[in-house]
Amino acid sequence: MRLDPHLSQGLVKTLLWTLTGFTLLILIFIIADIAVKGLPQVTPAFLSQNSTDMGRAGGIFPTIVATAYITLLAILLASPLGVGTAIYLTEYTREGWATRIIRFGSECLAGVPSIILGLFGFVLFVLKLGFGWSVLSGSLTLAIMVLPIIIRTSEEAIKAVPQDYRTACYSLGMSQWQTVTRIVLPSALPGITTGIMLSIGRSLGETAVLLFTAGAALRTPVSVFDSGRTMAVHFYILAREGISMPNAYGTAAVLVISILLINIVAYTLMQRMMKRYG
């Protein structure tokens, strides 16, 4: 049977539109749900006060600090390592069995379920190295979790830098290191930043890893050896133990808004950077 081209075109278009619309609808539904139930909770006091009665009352200040602390430390640990690995793989070595093993390892790491990574972090950092349930243990495990993302995106970004730039630099008597740091990395920075942003997003929303490694203390962490409860973990505990659904939604709203804000800021910075180097 042959369909009329106009009819089939129309059918496919409608179908694809419906699918796209459906995806969007899910997103809108989630955000609306969180906004409606959560935003009324979000007051200055909610953001700045300590939690009392296990989170049933008071604010979420300690969890905001813990989230920022753990995420920042994780990214600070993972970025140099990940970007460095990507530089090595793309600029300092030729394709061979060694690079293939490194890449395969990194892909495997990306496929490890976060609960298993959490268990690994618990055994290694919390118990074996004696860091206890702490910001440090949590950050280290999160860093391992996001490392493959950073490596992969940085590698793609560095590979996308035109070969001509490198040729031009070398023919001007620039060393490989100068070429990489002065020309290749700045050109790849938007792509690398995207990878780091993705990693921040993953870290902000992670719970399984942190339940095992950072604990769930509802105090504001000061030292890296203090236990800390991030917003995502707080949300999980409030909802799971039925402590306070309104406060859980309030926490979720703050979390979602921070992720949005970070993305907007990063996007703006990136645009500005591209203008400078374009």
Partner: peptide
Amino acid sequence: GLRRRVGLVLSRPTPLPRSVYENLALA
């Protein structure tokens, strides 16, 4: 050091993604 003494101009223009000034002053 050799490449600083022996410069190469390629057949295709290969400006670096910087200002005119930086293209000249960087190396």
